[in-house]
Simulated assay, not measured.
Amino acid sequence: MSHTISVVAVLKAKPGMEPEMAEQARSMAEASLAEPGCLSYRNYVDPDDPRSWVVVEEWADQASFDAHMASPHLAASLARSAELLAEPPSVKVLAPVV
């Protein structure tokens, strides 16, 4: 039996990189939502700290998430991380309690 996979990533943009972060967030959401097995992909920004971002994703199963992890758009996003992020992202991959 396969279970959904949820991912929560916490990101901190470098000062002044907020517009670029917003563009990358939109691009990642669009590309990820087009992938088979992507149930949801949402970007959030802290209204009190526009450099603080949270991404919440849900995938139908492990295979869908694995395919996402190997996707070209994720590789491109990760390659830009050094330019955009003030620190490495904190990523939690979660499974439902069954």
Rank of each mutant, 00 (worst) to 15 (best):
I5M: 00
Y44T: 14
E57F: 02
A31C: 07
A82F: 03
G37A: 07
V93H: 03
E57M: 08
S90R: 15
D46A: 09
D66P: 00
A9W: 00
M17C: 06
V93C: 05
M21R: 00
L78S: 12
L33Y: 04
A34I: 03
V54Y: 00
S27W: 14
A79N: 12
E30Q: 15
V8D: 13
A76G: 02
D46L: 06
V98K: 03
S32N: 11
E57D: 12
E30D: 11
L39G: 01
R80D: 03
A76T: 15
A79M: 05
C38N: 07
P96L: 04
V10Q: 05
A29I: 07
E87K: 06
E58P: 10
A70D: 14
A95T: 14
V91N: 03
M1V: 07
Y44H: 07
E57Q: 04
L39N: 04
F65I: 01
P50T: 09
P47A: 13
V93E: 00
A75V: 15
E83I: 15
S90N: 10
L78G: 09
V56F: 15
R51D: 04
K14I: 02
T4P: 06
D46I: 03
A95F: 14
H3Q: 15
V93I: 14
P50F: 03
P72R: 10
E35V: 02
L74A: 02
A82K: 08
P36L: 07
M28Y: 10
S6G: 13
S27M: 07
Y44E: 06
M28P: 03
S77Y: 10
E87Y: 02
E83T: 11
L74V: 07
Q62L: 13
P19T: 09
S81E: 06
V93L: 05
V98C: 09
A67G: 04
D48A: 15
S90K: 10
K14D: 13
D46E: 12
S2N: 11
K12N: 12
V93P: 12
A75C: 02
V45Q: 04
W59S: 05
L74G: 03
A67F: 00
P47D: 11
P88C: 10
P15N: 06
V7F: 09
P15F: 14
H73Q: 04
W59C: 01
K14R: 15
P19M: 13
D46M: 05
L11M: 08
E20W: 09
P72L: 12
A60G: 07
Y41K: 02
S32K: 10
E23C: 14
K12T: 13
V45K: 02
D61W: 00
E30F: 12
S40Y: 08
L94D: 15
R42K: 13
R80M: 13
P47C: 02
G16C: 02
A86M: 05
M69N: 15
P96M: 01
P47R: 00
L11Q: 01
P89R: 11
P50H: 05
Q24S: 11
P89G: 01
A31L: 10
V98L: 10
G37T: 00
V45R: 01
D46Q: 06
M17P: 01
S6V: 04
Q24R: 08
